[in-house]
Simulated assay, not measured.
Amino acid sequence: MALDASSVNSLGFAKPPAETRVVVAMSGGVDSSVVAAELAAEGYDVVGVTLQLYDHGAALAKKGACCAGRDIHDARRVAETMGFPHYVLDYENTFRDAVIDEFADSYLAGATPVPCIRCNERVKFRDLLETAKDLDADCMATGHYIRREMGAERAELHRAADPDRDQSYFLFSTTAEQLDYLRFPLGHLPTKAATRALAERHGLSVAMKPDSQDICFVPNGDYASVIEKLRPGAADPGEIVHADGRVLGTHAGVLHYTVGQRRGLGIGGLSEPLYVVKLDVEARRVIVGPKEMLSTRIVPVREINWLGDAPFASQSEWHLGVKVRSTRPPREAIVRPISPTEAEVELIVAEDGVSPGQACVFYAGEGSRVFGGGWIWRGA
Rank of each mutant, 00 (worst) to 15 (best):
L11P: 05
S295W: 09
E282L: 14
V226A: 13
A155Y: 14
S212G: 14
D180T: 03
A79G: 03
E292T: 08
G245H: 14
E346T: 14
V276T: 06
E80I: 03
A104Q: 08
Y257I: 07
T195L: 00
Y44C: 04
N9Q: 09
A343C: 12
D4E: 02
W375D: 10
I146R: 01
H86L: 03
K63H: 05
I146L: 10
L294N: 08
Y169T: 05
V370K: 05
G373T: 05
L89M: 12
A283V: 00
D71A: 15
D162M: 04
E282F: 06
Y257F: 15
P115E: 07
M82A: 08
H202N: 09
Y107M: 04
V254P: 00
C116T: 12
C360K: 05
R246T: 15
R159D: 00
V254E: 04
A207Y: 12
G28V: 07
E156A: 03
T341Y: 10
V288E: 11
A65Y: 03
R246N: 13
D222F: 02
A36S: 13
P115T: 13
Y44Q: 02
L265E: 04
L128A: 11
D74Q: 09
P16H: 07
E102F: 06
Q178N: 05
T20W: 10
M26P: 02
A193F: 00
G28K: 13
Y87E: 13
G268P: 00
K192H: 09
E239F: 15
F172D: 02
L53C: 04
D105M: 09
A36R: 08
R297A: 11
S314L: 02
A75D: 11
R285Q: 15
R147N: 02
V23M: 14
N9C: 10
H144L: 05
A61F: 10
I100Y: 01
V335H: 06
E292S: 10
E342D: 14
P273Q: 03
P273T: 03
N93G: 02
I334S: 11
G365P: 05
F84P: 01
S7E: 07
L108E: 08
K192T: 06
P185G: 10
E200M: 06
E177G: 08
Y363I: 04
T50L: 03
L157E: 00
S339K: 11
L39N: 07
I298Y: 14
P115Y: 09
E19Y: 07
E19S: 14
E153H: 15
S33E: 06
S271F: 01
G353R: 11
V345N: 09
S225P: 00
Q213F: 11
D166S: 10
T341S: 14
Y181N: 00
Y169N: 02
H56Q: 06
L186I: 07
T296I: 12
A37F: 03
R76D: 07
K62D: 01
Y54D: 12
D214M: 14
P17I: 06
K278L: 08
D31H: 03
M208V: 04
Y107V: 10
M208D: 13
W377C: 12
P330Y: 06
F362G: 10
L307D: 05
D280G: 09
S27N: 12
I215H: 06
M208H: 13
L179W: 11
I215L: 14
G264I: 11
L53D: 09
I240V: 15
E200D: 07
V226L: 15
T296N: 04
V8I: 15
S295N: 12
G245A: 12
D74E: 14
K278Q: 11
H158N: 12
R263D: 12
H256M: 01
A40M: 10
